[in-house]
Design a protein around this nucleic acid. Structure first.
Length: 757
DNA sequence: TGCACCGATGTTTTT
DNA sequence: CATCGGTGCA
């Protein structure tokens, strides 16, 4: 058993539902029983909630007082803590601000604007994600500048200024005393690399390191673990390659696939028995994941009951889909005497929660939405937090820009622009400029100068207060004295009222936080502590397990959770798998793993739903069933279709490519579109091509009819003309000129093209 | 300088 | 559809 393995590297490949958390819990408890000091154990989990739960489970085994000393948490929160205590080494203040994605976006957007670049070419979101992937791969500005191929790639993408933006962004963050999420990992690497004494200190401290969800670590995280474990090699990683779903933020599945290479004397255990789900669910999930090529061999099985078949249900629209889910929940609950908390509704995109919420609300079913626009991302909350952040760290540029004129106090954009320029000129923060405003003059009229002085004075008075008060007292003062709440009260609209309520909720939350912190010996309940907590917390971490509500969340958020009854909604092409993730095999495989994760959340029953058309951007769009539906072995399914028109493509489809490939994606377009149910409000759909006529393999016609010069239609790019066709078998590609949408090279396996005559 | 309106534009997924 | 940024007016 893994639990008796004490020293040396260890990898546990744990299939879905095989009790990963249990392994970690028992291993830690075991180590402690063997006399390992709890201070020398570092456990990195995927969510703070997982850490908290594990800690309390360990506490029941080894006792509260010992468990308390364990270092447990997410990579981000653990290393943020370490970075605070070592910040001066890197030239950062220990109270550095943590920028969230939105802060980064704003900063990047303003840099692009200041550099007078075309914002249609330099899209801030793209820039941000590129910078993020640089950081996650430890490509610093300096590394970027010395890698001609990176520079060349950006030049080819017609963004020659990428490097400049990157540099400016990093500089500005540094000057603002701010780190973004990626910095928390990158700077930790820098810290461990540049300062051997620091490295030695933490290597000696963390003699035992455990990493959960290892398959989702990125390069930066991987290197941190490697560095820390280098001395004692007591590293235990737990994961499941089949559940790697974070490639988009740099997770590298190779980290787990090549653990044996990194630690040649590593012991590997495999846990393949699933204790969570019914046989039908386990088998169906296996039948899906086997379509992936890149994976470790693993055979998950269970001794659990066969259970109910997986229900596949079609609805005309997303509204009806919601109604179906709501009434199913109602019925299951009645029939089987269940609680609301036994149900989860999972979706690919957060936007899908709305239709579900509406339906559940109508039936008075209590629910809770996780993720999406979380509480701490709401505007009014971010406003209050921005004041608080500015108080703690007056160099924080993004916070300052956010609140300097909110509520309106007559400080306009032109003034702010002048301040930004001056700050850059003097190589200092905007707040410092405010202090020297009289001395510098700088063409700001005296009225505005007074306003600026007042603002600066107000912040300073808060800073003084901060020296003697706790987080709650300051937050309370901020909401009152800044006029923030007053402005909302004056507004009087219903939204403003909810905003005030939210601010009150925030204050209550801060109070709770302080009470919680007081219980911990080395915590004081200061504003700094609170802000750090807020920056890295996610909805999931917030308690309230005990309230009886249906959970609504994205599949990503559901990782590691389990529910007796799971609805997976929106099983449609272009939604799940996402239209953004179908261009390469690896993207598609990640989508498939995501589906695998979703399915294996269910203990007793999984219900998959899809619609024939759904509202997207306020428009009703035709939808077709997800390919994942037909990838599941039919034996485990109960396909409920109101008018019986759901049909699977024959499993042994004619192989239209020369290369037989078991993993080949079948284009299926079940001919369900005819016989549109007479349901009201479903507008007639415009099928551009008489699909029904082309017997059972319309993909075949698709590919065969294609040649140069043919006019085609693509669901995203519109109509275009084929310029060239190249490759063969699975690699058959067409280069298509879509006019304004540009020339694209598409893999014909994935591109759903329709010929236009 | 500030506010109100308008059109454009974009949606994966998260620490 | 919802947010954002830009424009035009007071």
């Amino acid at each position: 058993m893994p639990t008796v393995h004490k020293d040396g590297p260890l990898m546990v490949i744990a299939g879905a539902g095989s009790g990963k958390t249990r392994v970690l819990t028992y291993r830690i408890a075991y180590l402690m029983q063997q006399g390992v000091d709890s201070f020398s154990i570092l456990a990195l989990t995927f969510t703070n909630k997982a850490a908290k739960e594990m800690k309390s489970r360990i506490a029941t085994i080894v006792g509260e007082s010992e468990a308390k000393n364990l270092w447990m948490g997410t990579f981000h929160s653990v290393f943020a803590r370490i970075l605070r205590s070592e910040a001066d080494r890197l030239g950062y203040p220990s109270n550095f601000t943590i920028y969230d994605t939105q802060d980064s976006d704003r900063l990047i957007a303003s840099i692009i604007k200041e550099m007078k670049l075309d914002k249609d070419v330099y899209k801030y979101k793209q820039i941000r994600s590129r910078i993020s992937s640089f950081k996650n791969s430890l490509i610093t500005v300096r590394a970027y500048m010395s890698h001609p191929e990176l520079i060349e790639a950006d030049r080819e993408a017609r963004r020659p200024q990428m490097g400049e933006i990157y540099k400016e962004y990093v500089d500005r963050c540094f000057k603002a005393g701010a780190m973004d999420f990626d910095d928390l990992l990158l700077k930790t690497n820098e810290l461990l690399n540049r300062f051997p004494d620091v490295l030695a200190k933490y290597q000696n401290r963390f003699r035992y390191i455990l990493v959960d969800e290892y398959q989702d670590t990125n390069q930066s995280q991987y290197l941190i673990v490697k560095a820390l474990a280098d001395r004692f090699q007591n590293v235990c990683v737990v994961g499941d390659d089949a559940q790697s779903i974070y490639a988009f933020r740099g997770a590298n599945i190779e980290n787990i696939l090549s653990f044996q290479n990194d630690y040649p004397n590593a012991t590997t255990y495999r846990l393949e028995q699933n204790y969570r789900s019914s046989q039908n669910i386990v088998k169906a999930a296996n039948s899906v994941i086997k379509h992936n090529q890149n994976k470790l061999d693993k055979n998950v099985w269970t001794e659990n009951a066969v259970g109910e078949k997986i229900i596949v249900h079609r609805s005309p629209t997303d509204g009806e889909e919601g109604r179906y889910v709501a009434s199913s929940i109602f019925e299951y609950k009645m029939q089987h005497q269940l609680h609301h908390r036994d149900f989860a509704v999972l979706y690919r995109t957060n936007a899908q929660s709305r239709a579900m919420e509406d339906a559940l609300r109508k039936r008075d079913i209590p629910y809770r939405v996780f993720g999406g626009l979380s509480f701490y991302q709401r505007k009014e909350i971010k406003d209050v937090l921005a004041y608080l952040r500015l108080i703690v760290n007056s160099k924080d540029e993004e916070s300052l820009k956010r609140v300097i004129n909110y509520p309106a106090r007559g400080i306009g954009q032109t003034t702010i622009d002048k301040l930004v320029v001056k700050a850059k000129e003097h190589d200092c923060s905007i707040f410092e400029i405010l202090e020297r405003i009289e001395e510098l003059g700088m063409g700001i009229n005296s009225g505005t100068r007074t306003k600026l002085a007042n603002f600066s004075m107000m912040i300073k008075s808060f800073q003084v207060l901060n020296e003697t008060s706790n987080a709650f007292e300051i937050a309370d003062a901020v909401t009152k004295k800044t006029g923030l709440v007053q402005a909302l009260k004056k507004d009087g609209t219903p939204e403003a009222v909810t905003r005030i309520e939210n601010i009150e909720e925030l204050l209550n939350g801060i109070k709770d936080f302080i009470d919680g912190q007081r219980e911990l010996a080395d915590m004081t309940g200061s504003l700094t502590e609170f802000l750090e907590d807020v920056a890295l917390i996610s909805d999931l971490d917030q308690g309230s397990e005990n309230d009886d509500r249906v959970s609504l969340m994205s599949i990503h958020m559901a990782k590691g959770l389990e529910f007796p009854y799971v609805f997976i909604v929106g099983m449609e092409e272009d939604l799940f798998p996402s239209a953004m993730s179908m261009n390469t095999r690896s993207e598609l495989e990640e989508e498939r793993r995501l589906f695998y994760v979703a399915l294996t959340r269910a203990e007793k029953q999984a219900i998959l739903t899809y619609t024939q058309s759904r509202y997207r951007w306020g428009k009703l769009i035709d939808a077709e069933p997800s390919r994942f539906l037909s990838e599941m072995d039919e034996a485990y399914l109960d396909v409920q279709t109101p008018d019986d028109s759901y049909q699977f493509q024959p499993l042994l489809n004619t192989d239209i490519f020369d290369t037989p490939d078991p993993n080949r994606v079948r284009f299926k377009k079940p001919p369900l579109k005819k016989a549109a149910p007479k349901a009201k409000s479903v507008p007639p759909r415009k099928n551009l091509k008489p699909i029904a006529n082309t017997t059972n393999t319309n993909d075949q016609t698709n590919v065969e009819g294609l040649s140069e010069g043919i006019k085609v239609k693509h669901s995203r790019f519109g109509t275009g003309i084929i310029v060239a066709i190249e490759g063969n078998g699975n690699d058959l590609k067409a280069e298509i000129d879509f006019g304004t949408a540009g020339v694209k090279k598409l893999l014909l396996r994935f591109a759903k093209l329709q010929i236009i005559k």
